[in-house]
Amino acid sequence: MNIFRFAGDLSHVFAIIILLLKIWKTRSCAGISGKSQILFAVVYLTRYLDLFTTYVSLYNSVMKVLFLATSGATVYLMYVKFKATYDHNHDSFRIEFLLVPCALLALVINHEFTVMEVLWTFSIYLESVAILPQLFLVSRTGEAESITSHYLFALGSYRALYLLNWVYRYMVESHYDLIAIFAGVVQTVLYCDFFYLYITKVLKGKKLQLPA
């Protein structure tokens, strides 16, 4: 565990808490893509199956349970408790266009052709693109509330910090995982446009509004 990895994890937890608090306090999930939240739940479910087979550390297990529980809670709040506020019409990204290619790619490019490893690989590929329905929703409505922007910034920063973690681990431990690195680069690149808008607009107190 190095500082980049730990900062990345904190950023990830922070993003999830921001999102849950936003939904809970405003009693509304307007502007949030339920499709992205479902994809994240699928990501955690398929990646953290090793919770039952491999013990890494208390930190590792606690975080896995936390991600599973909070993503389940988010999906519950969006699709059950605050269903009436869910922006159904704008959240029209077809998730099968992400699920199917990620599944096929995981079957072809993986470290080991076992159920656990293919599911892990699938979750890595899917996570890299899981934010697309959310970005699509923002582009369709043309704007995002500040709190949603903070959520996206924290969520995007997490994988960017993991990239630094991987550079550090390569240099210090000679450890690298090409699948994770490749997917992590894709994931971070998808946020670049948003990062630019966040820094130039939201941090200056303006609302995130896309040019018409």
């Binding site: 990895r5 590792n60 975080m63 470290h111 080991e112």
Partner: peptide, 10 residues
């Protein structure tokens, strides 16, 4: 091996 299938990252 450089590929460590033990998943210590999240």
């Amino acid at each position: 091996s450089d590929i460590d299938l033990d998943k210590d990252e999240l």
